[in-house]
Amino acid sequence: MDELELIRERAETVGFATADDLAAARARFLAATRTGPRRSRRWFWAAGATTIGLAAAITAVVTLAPADRIGVGAGVANADPVKVLTEAAGAALTEPATAPRPDQFLYVKTALPEHQTREVWLSVDGTRDGLIGDTKSAGCRDGKAPVYGANDPTKEGTLEDCVPYPAYRADLPTTGDAMLAYLEAHHSGEKGDTNAIGKDVIDLAYEQALSPASYAALFEAAAKVPGLQAVDHVTDGAGRPGVGITWPVSPGSSPDAKPEVLVFDTTTHRFLGTDTTAVMAKTFVDQAGQRP
């Protein structure tokens, strides 16, 4: 076993230190090199340094932080997709837990390719008229919703049957196993289509609002989907760097089919968007058309 192999083994065992811990360790090391005898400083840099000495020096730094404090880290190579999603779940639990009022609207601003922007105002309880861009989005009241933006002008404003589709999903599971069962029962593709589940995860994370416990359960459920892969050094649709998580496309898909890629911030582990889109703002407002 050479020096690098031993260092790698030790690092994987004890975990990496935080930037603050490393700064403190670096300061102690530099102080030692300035004040210690010349012979004690030379061993670390000399080509003949022993493997044990080098590994011990690395261990002294990496053990400053317990393994459960390891982050994804900016530009990390070979990220663990399960760990990324687990940390995203933990970040979701830190979000405010106060539910919106039924008469409010979920405002989401999304950056799209070619410098385009999408803004939506969606009814929290699904009963009030919202907006998708400049177009009205009908709310469902007493089983009826008005028709807006119809190709046939005679149908504009007429009523059609509906069920409310709330933007705030208070009905979703709050554990990873239950959320996975929900996704498998309601996903948009065929049974076993993991990429379809990935798309549904994105839909729930994008223009819908969940409780912090349900957001955490969503990412915990995603971590249980087979075939997960991490995409390192990826950026979201706004160019923000992060770490990506993706699933393989379903068998029989077009050769041009590309898997969905969820992008998470490498420091906060919060969901940023995808590799082609980005969530720029997401909050509750009191009126359709109102911006935070």
Rank of each mutant, 00 (worst) to 15 (best):
A185L: 08
W247P: 03
L22P: 10
A91F: 02
M179S: 01
L172E: 07
E190G: 15
D275R: 09
A23S: 14
L218Q: 01
I70V: 15
Q229R: 13
G143Y: 04
T277V: 13
S253E: 07
D129N: 14
R169K: 14
E260N: 14
G48K: 14
V124M: 06
E184T: 15
M280C: 08
D134K: 15
E3T: 14
V201P: 00
D236R: 12
T175I: 02
V279R: 01
D161M: 09
G157M: 13
L180I: 05
K155C: 05
A167S: 09
I245R: 01
L4V: 09
D2K: 11
H115S: 14
P241H: 11
T13V: 11
R34W: 11
V82L: 08
G139L: 04
T158N: 11
S137F: 08
Y215M: 11
K155G: 10
A46N: 10
L172V: 05
T94A: 15
A209V: 02
G130H: 00
A97P: 06
Y165K: 13
Y168H: 13
G73D: 06
C162E: 04
L262M: 13
V163F: 12
T194E: 03
T267K: 07
A60I: 03
G157W: 12
K109N: 08
H187N: 15
R128N: 05
P100Q: 09
A99F: 03
A138W: 00
T63A: 12
E156T: 06
D203W: 03
R141M: 08
G189I: 03
T86Q: 13
F264L: 09
G198Y: 01
V61E: 06
T18Q: 14
S214T: 02
L30P: 12
D21C: 13
G149L: 02
I245N: 02
E9N: 12
D152L: 03
G126L: 04
L228V: 09
A27M: 14
E9K: 13
L64P: 00
A47F: 08
A181T: 10
L204G: 00
V62Y: 01
D80F: 08
A32F: 15
S253W: 06
A19V: 15
F271A: 04
G252A: 08
P292H: 11
L183N: 01
K136L: 14
P255G: 05
L204C: 01
A57N: 12
P259V: 04
P212H: 07
T276H: 12
V72L: 13
